Simulated scan of single mutants.
Amino acid sequence: MIIRKPLVAASLLAAACLLCLPTKPATAHSLFIQAARYHVSKGKVSPLFFCYGHHFPVDDAVRKEKLHSVQIQSPDKSVAPVQLRDGKSLHSYMVDYEQPGTYVLSAETTPGYFTRWTDKKGRKRHSIKPMQAIAQKAASVETSIFSKQWTKTYVTCEKPSSPFPGCIGMPLELVPAQDPSTYKKGEIAEFKVYRYGKPYTGVGYWDATYNGYSTVAEDMYVQRTEVRDGVIRLPLDTTGRWFVRFFIKTPAPENKRDEYLTSKLTSTLVFEIPNARKKPKVDGH
């Protein structure tokens, strides 16, 4: 598999955000990885691109420093890293689909921080640095979050792989119970949460939406929902591109409490349910 040079101008971005606490408004960005096409012919060259921000389908550019890694897993299980472009951009990259089967496009963010605090003059402030960076200026710290994200999508070249390469061993991962290319409108899609390749059954929160549902930021089709068994069930009420997000939130360990108060880990997944052609083709097009 060959990953071609970056495609600078043609990519789209979409987004939803990192939710600091289950009961508080969103404060930061979530990252989703997408493919321009979800079913391709062998030899097809097609871009991947990122969704980042607060609005679907386009919001913000991504800094290279925010992306710890981007990689492509081919149907033969070989993994190729993507060489990232410097600077802040749309970060779209051309991928050659050379083998029949299921490709897994994935990415991991560089860890980040978000601290909300009050300075010694009583002014409300926020920072993308850990707590010790503002310790001398702060009278109090309202919240301080350490965050890291993992994102994934699947592309079928000619036909799905068997077995379906659902889990690729990410630290936090949403794994479909079946190949997303087999989903149909009206079904219930089931996803299982994994931590380092093993089922996760702790408390977490998920939400989901599809492209075109709403133009308002964080106006999700399925609102934030608590899950305690690591299993998510999503009603597929329409065709189109779906975005699913899951996060877990835990107190900082003792040796990190000078850096942050809460750890938040997020996993996202994009998949597409195609529809039949609605109007006949026009000759010559």
Rank of each mutant, 00 (worst) to 15 (best):
E142Y: 11
E142G: 12
F146I: 03
Q149L: 02
W150Q: 11
K152P: 01
T153P: 04
T156L: 08
K159P: 07
S161A: 12
S162D: 14
P163C: 08
G166N: 00
G166D: 00
I168Y: 06
M170N: 07
M170R: 07
P171F: 10
P176H: 06
D179R: 09
Y183F: 15
K184C: 11
A189Y: 00
E190T: 04
F191V: 08
K192H: 15
Y194T: 08
R195L: 08
Y196S: 14
G197P: 09
G197V: 10
K198F: 02
G202V: 04
G204N: 01
A208S: 13
T209Y: 02
Y210D: 04
N211E: 12
G212L: 13
Y213P: 09
T215K: 13
V216M: 10
A217H: 12
E218P: 07
M220A: 12
Q223H: 12
Q223N: 15
R224G: 13
R224C: 10
R228G: 06
R228P: 05
R228S: 11
D229I: 15
G230F: 03
G230K: 05
V231C: 04
V231H: 03
L234F: 00
L236G: 04
L236R: 03
T239Y: 15
G240M: 13
R241N: 14
R245Y: 09
F246D: 11
K249E: 14
P251W: 06
P251K: 06
A252R: 03
A252N: 01
P253K: 02
E259Y: 14
Y260C: 02
L265M: 14
S267M: 01
T268E: 04
L269D: 04
